[in-house]
């Protein structure tokens, strides 16, 4: 019951992310997603052995909810990124698209109920909706920082998806996932500092020197 509530809350944070025009609000929403994922892990705690559980708690509570948001804040302050998000389309339409995608996620839950054995259809539907919404947010925003934020939201969706599958591979899978998030964010942050010194505004419109 708690699990399902949390899953729907995570879906709701994506709606919030799609509607806000402030970068800080997105970072806060990502941090909240980290906390919600932590609750999701706790709800399923009996399914993991101690090592896996400790690892998952560190991954959600420490890395996703605290470390990465702080790191992003630092990048923003250091590079004087304006607070507005600068979408290509009005926020209202973003919200509309995100809602439709989330609705599609629930539809998928409904359809896959008969097919899945042992997996949670709701987690599957919502996590795929989170992933697709994140991809949509990436392509509909100009600023590079919002692309990174979208990527992180997508990784949160992938994390939810991994929670829905066989327990035996949890550790290996999550080590890979953490590696992915950590190194990608670290590298992207590093290069973002460089981009800030070469380009005036940090938006994709400026990354257009290379084309045919």
């Amino acid at each position: 019951m708690v699990g399902e509530f949390v899953i729907i809350m995570i879906g709701a944070t994506m709606l919030a992310i799609s509607f806000t025009s402030r970068i800080h609000a997105v970072i806060r929403a990502l941090s909240i997603q980290g906390l919600l994922l932590f609750v999701l892990v706790l709800d399923d705690a009996h399914a993991f052995d101690t090592i896996n559980l400790v690892f998952l708690i560190i991954e959600t509570l420490v890395v996703k909810a605290v470390v990465i948001p702080l790191f992003l804040q630092r990048i923003i302050v250091r590079n004087h990124i304006y607070r507005e998000i600068e979408p290509y389309i009005p926020n209202f339409y973003s919200l509309l698209v995100a809602s439709i995608i989330l609705g599609g996620g629930f539809l998928l839950e409904h359809l896959s109920r008969g097919v899945t054995s042992g997996t949670k259809p709701l987690a599957l539907g919502v996590s795929l909706a989170v992933i697709v919404t994140a991809l949509f947010l990436i392509i509909s925003r100009k600023k590079l920082i919002t692309h990174v934020l979208g990527f992180l939201a997508m990784e949160n969706g992938v994390f939810m998806l991994t929670m829905a599958v066989a327990r035996e591979h949890t550790f290996a899978v999550n080590v890979g996932l953490l590696l992915d998030v950590f190194l990608a964010v670290f590298l992207l942050g590093l290069f973002m500092n460089r981009i800030a010194s070469s380009y005036e505004e940090m938006s994709v419109d400026e990354l257009s020197d290379l084309k045919d």
Binding site: T116, T119, L124, L128, I131, L135, I138, L144, H147, F151, M154, E155, V158, L161, T162, A164, V165, A166, H169, V173, G176, L177, D180, A184, L187, L188, F191, R194, I195, S198, L207, D209, L210
Partner: peptide
């Protein structure tokens, strides 16, 4: 320009590799 290319490389390939990961998870399901 190298910076632009590197940014696109890391970003697009990270998205791609995340999709491959989803594929593996779906396979495991």
């Amino acid at each position: 320009t190298a910076l632009e290319a590197t940014w696109k490389y890391i970003f697009i390939c990270s998205i791609g590799i995340a999709l491959a990961f989803i594929g593996i998870i779906l396979l495991m399901m």
